[in-house]
Computed example of a mutant assay.
Amino acid sequence: MKIKDIETALEIFEEACIKHSEATEQGDYKTANKYYAKIIKAATFLKSENAISNLKDYLSSSFVGIRLWAACYWLAVNEQEGIEVLEEIVKSTGIHSLTAETTLSEWKKGNLKF
C-alpha cells in the first residue's frame, strides 16, 4: 500500500481507525494489529507532508476510534486539546476508556512519541 496524497492518507487513517476500534472491541487482536499498521502508515505520511494538522477535524468524530487516534497524534500539535479529547474518552465505558487512560498516563510520563 503506497500512499500518494494527503486525501488518501486521511481516508486510510479514518477507515483504519474504525476497523481497529471494532476489532479491539471484539477482542480480535490480529485484525486490530493489521489496522494499527495502517493507522501508523497514514499518520507517518501525514507527518512527512506536514499535514498532521488535518487530523483536527477528527477530534470531534462520532466514532470513538477516530477520536482516540486523532487525539493521540494531536498531543504533539496541541497537547491540551489532545488531552481534553482523551479525558472525554476516559469518562466513557468500554475498552477505549482504558486505552485513553493508559495513553494519557504514558504521555505524561514521557514514554510516548507520536
Rank of each mutant, 00 (worst) to 15 (best):
93 T>M: 04
106 E>Q: 12
73 Y>M: 08
93 T>I: 09
80 Q>A: 09
102 T>H: 10
50 N>I: 08
82 G>F: 04
68 L>R: 15
65 G>C: 04
100 A>V: 03
23 A>T: 06
20 H>E: 11
78 N>V: 00
107 W>Y: 12
73 Y>G: 07
41 K>T: 12
11 E>Q: 14
108 K>W: 02
73 Y>T: 02
90 V>P: 13
35 Y>E: 05
92 S>I: 13
82 G>A: 05
89 I>H: 05
48 S>F: 07
3 I>F: 09
17 C>W: 00
77 V>G: 00
99 T>F: 09
53 S>V: 15
62 S>P: 05
26 Q>D: 14
100 A>T: 12
43 A>K: 03
23 A>W: 03
39 I>R: 03
26 Q>Y: 09
89 I>E: 00
78 N>W: 00
62 S>R: 09
10 L>Q: 05
45 F>M: 04
13 F>V: 13
33 N>L: 06
62 S>A: 10
23 A>E: 00
61 S>K: 04
24 T>I: 03
40 I>W: 04
109 K>Q: 07
42 A>E: 03
91 K>D: 12
14 E>D: 14
7 E>P: 11
106 E>Y: 14
29 Y>W: 14
64 V>Y: 08
67 R>H: 09
99 T>S: 02
102 T>F: 09
109 K>F: 01
82 G>T: 06
42 A>N: 01
86 L>E: 01
89 I>T: 07
80 Q>M: 09
74 W>H: 11
21 S>Y: 03
60 S>P: 08
57 D>W: 00
14 E>N: 10
18 I>W: 00
18 I>F: 00
23 A>R: 02
43 A>R: 05
107 W>H: 13
101 E>F: 15
103 T>V: 15
29 Y>V: 15
64 V>K: 12
98 L>C: 06
56 K>L: 02
10 L>D: 06
102 T>Y: 07
97 S>C: 02
53 S>P: 01
57 D>E: 14
40 I>Y: 09
65 G>Y: 01
78 N>P: 07
6 I>K: 11
107 W>K: 07
30 K>H: 08
97 S>E: 01
16 A>Q: 04
28 D>N: 15
26 Q>I: 02
59 L>H: 04
97 S>L: 00
38 K>D: 13
108 K>N: 12
61 S>G: 09
17 C>K: 01
87 E>Q: 13
96 H>R: 07
57 D>P: 08
60 S>I: 14
88 E>G: 07
34 K>T: 14
32 A>L: 05
39 I>F: 05
18 I>L: 00
66 I>F: 08
35 Y>M: 01
13 F>Y: 10
21 S>C: 13
10 L>R: 06
